[in-house]
Design a protein around this nucleic acid. Sequence first.
DNA 1: TACATTTTGTTACTATTTTCACAATAAATT
DNA 2: AATTTATTGTGAAAATAGTAACAAAATGTA
Lengths: 203, 203
Amino acid sequence: MYLKNNIRRLLVYRQCLLKLKELGFEVIYSYNLGREASVSPEQVRKDFSKFGIKGKRKAGYEIDHLLEALDIIFKKDKDQNVILVGMGNIGKALSNYKGFAQHKIVICAAFDIDPSKQTKSYKIPVYPVEDISRIVKMYHVKIAIIAVPKPAAQEVCNRLIASGIQGIINFSPTNLKHPKNIFINNIDLANEMESLIYFTLNQ
Amino acid sequence: MYLKNNIRRLLVYRQCLLKLKELGFEVIYSYNLGREASVSPEQVRKDFSKFGIKGKRKAGYEIDHLLEALDIIFKKDKDQNVILVGMGNIGKALSNYKGFAQHKIVICAAFDIDPSKQTKSYKIPVYPVEDISRIVKMYHVKIAIIAVPKPAAQEVCNRLIASGIQGIINFSPTNLKHPKNIFINNIDLANEMESLIYFTLNQ
DNA sequence: TACATTTTGTTACTATTTTCACAATAAATT
DNA sequence: AATTTATTGTGAAAATAGTAACAAAATGTA
Ligand SMILES: NC(=O)c1ccc[n+]([C@@H]2O[C@H](COP(=O)([O-])OP(=O)(O)OC[C@H]3O[C@@H](n4cnc5c(N)ncnc54)[C@H](O)[C@@H]3O)[C@@H](O)[C@H]2O)c1
Ligand SMILES: NC(=O)c1ccc[n+]([C@@H]2O[C@H](COP(=O)([O-])OP(=O)(O)OC[C@H]3O[C@@H](n4cnc5c(N)ncnc54)[C@H](O)[C@@H]3O)[C@@H](O)[C@H]2O)c1
């Protein structure tokens, strides 16, 4: 079953629901949430329906109930440890970001090849790359972020996979070779800009 | 016509082609490129076909010809000026990045509400937000990047649109309200991590 | 030149996603 | 209690995307 867009939308709904809750709402209708998330009301209902999340006819959905259901889907009962490789521009930005905490995402360690980055002056400890395997095992880490220059990315990827990492966010603008049981989410910021430019300029 | 995935794949092909060219290839077959881009050969051919890009039966595609065709599709004949609002963690990372140049993307100015950021010590000039409209008009800027905290994002978005911006990359984790002729590409890094975690943990 | 081989380009097919339509039902109103 | 109204949940229809199959074309070979 192909659920990619579905999952992405659920995550958007989650953020909208937190916002709406903060604004004092306790119950929402599919069209409220749809308006907030830029999605059609039918799509909202179908997305919830696919995961067996129920509302009440005429009375909409209880926000707290939705958030609980989403927490179960996304396993938000405990923190998810993540490691970061490459303490450069992007790596530093990510390691400084406080917003991951409320998603229960914790960057528990970072790694860099440059000894001058391996200090305790960052918010998270920065180790040499040789320590990846040890730390991954120690903290049962499944997810890693690659934020190294393009020429180093494949080598880092291989090392991560050999250490037991199962999912990778890759910021380097290159398509990494990997076994098909490993998930890779490429975030290519230049391509994101280009595609925005394309759609903007072609009306 | 819904071309979103198509366009994204073309951008991936572009990066693969540049790499393959660097490795000395002059001609590639759909399966070479497909392997490099993690896409089926049929999909590669279909994508090109949709944009009228032709190869030669039995002789594949000339890399230079493909790159030229892609340059036309993505209007790479001249630099594309882009502005950046918010000179914090993400803003600084983006403004330091040298890789945009080879995509002909130029961050020509940045803006921040904090006077201490409005210095000439960054690689690009940082102005107060009141100057957005003036600079946008002066440089004919169509595209902006929002890298401000969530609570400021909508207000910044409104100002950008009022100044004539037509496309926005939004790093703040919120769904911006906007007229439908404006394109918004939301890059929500926490959600990207969450969706990777979802797919990784659900096998 | 005829024949075999390879690879594109496209059409037909399949799968998935989104939209539409409306019955079911809960709440509100008379 | 009956009626009206609003909203969900879902099955059917439409749109989109991706896969497979294969004829057409280019190249190589006997
Ligand atoms: N900065 C941006 O805004 C931006 C935008 C788009 C894409 N990217 C991509 O993101 C990646 C990181 O970009 P950046 O600007 O942070 O780069 P950067 O050069 O600032 O940082 C890279 C870091 O990786 C470390 N490193 C190099 N080789 C390593 C290895 N083998 N193992 C471990 N660490 C290693 C370096 O010491 C450095 O600290 C790059 O691939 C870049 O193309 C960055
Ligand atoms: N840093 C990350 O890794 C990361 C990860 C995910 C999401 N984000 C999101 O990206 C956005 C930026 O994150 P950051 O870490 O760079 O934040 P930051 O706090 O480091 O920087 C924000 C910058 O915006 C400026 N600013 C505030 N209000 C403004 C206004 N009204 N007009 C112009 N400038 C204004 C501030 O002065 C500051 O320089 C946030 O919305 C954040 O949620 C960041």
